[in-house]
């Protein structure tokens, strides 16, 4: 059987995350890394997840992959439903990822095959003692019943797709012989090698310099078209979001504070935190615009304020904000926000 591509129907729900609670049990106490987050990822679309370090965006991704350092960090509540895309006109049944054993063959069959992930640190993401090719072939042969030659051909093909020059030769190179950008491309190649329906990219270009960053992002977008896959893009860089995302999710201290289409987030941010983020971006060409940093700092996870977690830093905070946590509302269609201003 040759490696074959899936057909994806754009717009259908692929992954649904409902009321996800992921907590870390540390010596100093419990850290609610993800605290009741709900969202969906649609087929063929890119969901951008933004927020400062420690806001729980990476932990959300790890929860979907079931790669949390259990039992120290684990999903305590909520549901992650994966809807495998239609294949050969056969509808496959949905899976609740949270109900699976993380070591089970079913979960392993989802990891890498249906949901692939790339990480922030290209320098350390590849195993130094195996060639890049071996590592990609390993992934292909793990999920598909193909012989080594077929897998190798596929590896070369996918390396070529991620713009690695001379892939026939470079496939037998070790990671340390490649630059950071090339390693990240190789990582993307590995992730794409099995035609995943969802690619989770956790700060994929943060460690790279700007020109390479732009090229890799463009390449990712092209490949998304070609493969028809969804991308969950985690970043703190709003520029990357603006270029890549269809839908944006803003997180603050484990909670989703705002979710909307990318245009609405940039032009009509509702939550004061999102507004603050927008004001703190330097925009070339806008001379009169002053950069306004958000005052204060992220609260300690062991010492969270009552009410809205953003209230201590919020310029528009009211008494109510300090007493009660705001519920999520939908002031305009498809635009969700958790703030008392819109209640």
């Amino acid at each position: 059987m040759a490696v074959e591509q899936k057909e994806l129907a754009v717009g259908q729900e692929l992954v649904r995350i409902e009321d996800l609670h992921t907590q870390f049990f540390t010596e100093q106490g419990i850290v609610k890394a993800v605290d009741g987050v709900t969202f969906s990822i649609e087929q063929g679309k890119t969901l951008g997840v933004v927020g400062e370090s420690g806001c729980g965006k990476s932990i959300t991704a790890m929860s979907i992959m079931r790669l949390l350092p259990e039992p120290r960090g684990r999903i305590v509540k909520g549901k992650i439903t994966f809807f495998p895309p239609q294949q050969n006109n056969i509808n496959q049944t949905s899976v609740d990822i949270t109900a699976l054993d993380r070591h089970s063959s079913q979960m392993r069959g989802i990891r890498g095959r249906h949901i692939a992930m790339i990480f922030q640190e290209p320098m350390t993401s590849l195993n130094p003692v195996y060639t890049v090719g071996d590592q990609i072939i390993e992934a292909i042969q793990l999920h598909q019943q193909v012989d080594r030659d077929t897998a190798r051909a596929r590896a070369i093909e996918v390396l070529e797709q991620v713009d690695i020059p001379d892939p026939e030769r470079r496939i037998s190179e070790y990671p340390h012989q490649m630059s950071g950008g090339q390693r990240q491309r190789a990582m993307i190649a590995m992730a794409l090698s099995c035609y995943p329906s969802l690619l989770i990219a956790d700060e994929p270009t943060t460690a790279l310099d700007v020109t390479i960053q732009a090229k890799i992002l463009r390449n990712m977008r092209d490949l998304q078209q070609e493969y028809g896959m969804s991308i969950m893009l985690i970043t703190h860089d709003l520029g990357v979001i603006g270029r890549m995302a269809d839908e944006v999710l803003v997180m603050y201290v484990g909670k989703k504070v705002e979710q909307a289409e990318v245009r609405n987030i940039f032009h009509n941010p509702l939550h004061p935190y999102t507004q603050g983020l927008m004001k703190s971006i330097p925009l070339i060409g806008l001379k009169d615009k002053k950069l306004v940093p958000i005052t204060g700092s992220v609260p300690s996870p062991f010492n969270l304020p009552t009410g809205c977690y953003f209230a201590p830093r919020c310029p528009q905070a009211m008494d109510r904000c300090r007493r009660e946590a705001p519920p999520e509302t939908e002031p305009e269609p498809g635009h969700f926000v958790s703030c008392w201003l819109y209640k």
Partner: peptide, 26 residues
């Protein structure tokens, strides 16, 4: 704790292969 061990898990490899092929070797 290295990233590439996580990468190996993210591929869908079983924990035994992750440990013996990817971690122990290093």
């Amino acid at each position: 704790n290295m990233q590439y061990v996580q990468t190996a898990r993210a591929k869908g490899l079983s924990e035994n292969i992750v440990i013996y092929k990817h971690a122990v070797r290093n």
